[in-house]
Design a protein around this nucleic acid. Structure first.
Length: 262
DNA sequence: ATGCCCAGTCTCACTGGA
């Protein structure tokens, strides 16, 4: 069966709802992992999505963060949150993970902490969060079922994944410790499913709103799809839908779309 | 024009994003 799975940091599901609905209709995506809902679970637009044939597993508590899995092919065994994960501040848990089984695949939608500045408490939180994620997904990553962790990882895997490495020297998103956390995650059996760009040479997924970053293609690849062997082997295509970054009312992130034949 | 930040809130000022 052909499956279309995607991940998209929408930067407020409320602000993005018209675009989200149009995008789902346009692309026919079966399973969408969403990040930065910026809305409480009770205010999530379940009805609008149900009208399109989708159900949703939502982890959201208010103005910051928030993640969901939106599926039109089933939604089972939902796990809300990152089991054993740290919180911030004062170890208060944040809504940054939700997982579900959708038909033949199991997916996680994750919004990894930003880190703010190297050495900041939020940066240490980010690294601890990655460790907990690794522990939580290791079993499914090594299993026989197609499995993937999709989301906004807030790490550029290599210097090729930022428009100018010199600009990011000393900043979060590119440090050896963050990249080591990604490598440790891959060691559980996950592969970086690198999408193709629809224009230019690099598959960036994020462009700042400011200073014409998108038209100048000053982007970063920080929205990632990490799939296990059975998932990666089923991939028939993967691309960044940069068209969705254009125009008024766009998120600052573009969707990453993965087509599977399972 | 892909076009010179955006979203949410404890809303006219601030936090957070990366």
């Amino acid at each position: 069966m052909a499956l279309r799975i995607a991940t998209w940091n929408v930067n407020s599901v409320t602000a993005r709802l018209p675009r989200l609905v149009a995008w789902l209709e346009r692309t026919g995506t079966d399973v969408l992992c969403v990040q930065e809902l910026k809305v409480a679970e009770a205010a999530f637009p379940y009805e609008e999505l149900r009208a399109l044939g989708y159900e949703a597993a939502v982890n959201g508590t208010g103005r910051w963060n928030g993640v969901a899995v939106i599926s039109r092919i089933g939604l089972e065994d939902v796990v809300t949150g990152l089991p054993g994960g740290p919180g911030f501040p004062d170890d208060e848990p944040e809504p940054r993970a939700v997982s579900a089984t959708c038909g033949p695949v199991r997916v996680w939608s994750v919004y990894v902490p930003n880190g703010r500045e190297v050495g900041h408490a939020h940066y240490e939180y980010k690294l601890r969060w990655f460790e907990a994620l690794r522990g939580a997904v290791a079993g499914d990553a090594a299993g026989p079922r197609p499995f993937a962790v999709l989301g906004d990882y807030n790490v550029a895997p290599t210097d090729e994944d930022v428009w100018d490495p010199a600009v990011f020297a000393g900043s979060t998103h590119v440090t050896p410790a963050e990249r080591a956390a990604l490598a440790a995650l891959r060691e559980t059996g996950l592969t970086d499913v690198v999408p193709r760009p629809l224009k230019y040479d690099r598959p960036y997924t994020y462009w700042d709103y400011r200073q014409l970053a998108f038209p100048k293609n000053k982007g970063m690849r920080i929205d990632l799809v990490y799939g296990n062997g059975p998932f990666a082997e089923a991939v028939s295509d993967a691309y960044v839908d940069r068209e969705e970054r254009k125009g008024k009312g766009a998120s600052d992130h573009a969707p990453v779309v993965v087509d599977l034949e399972v």
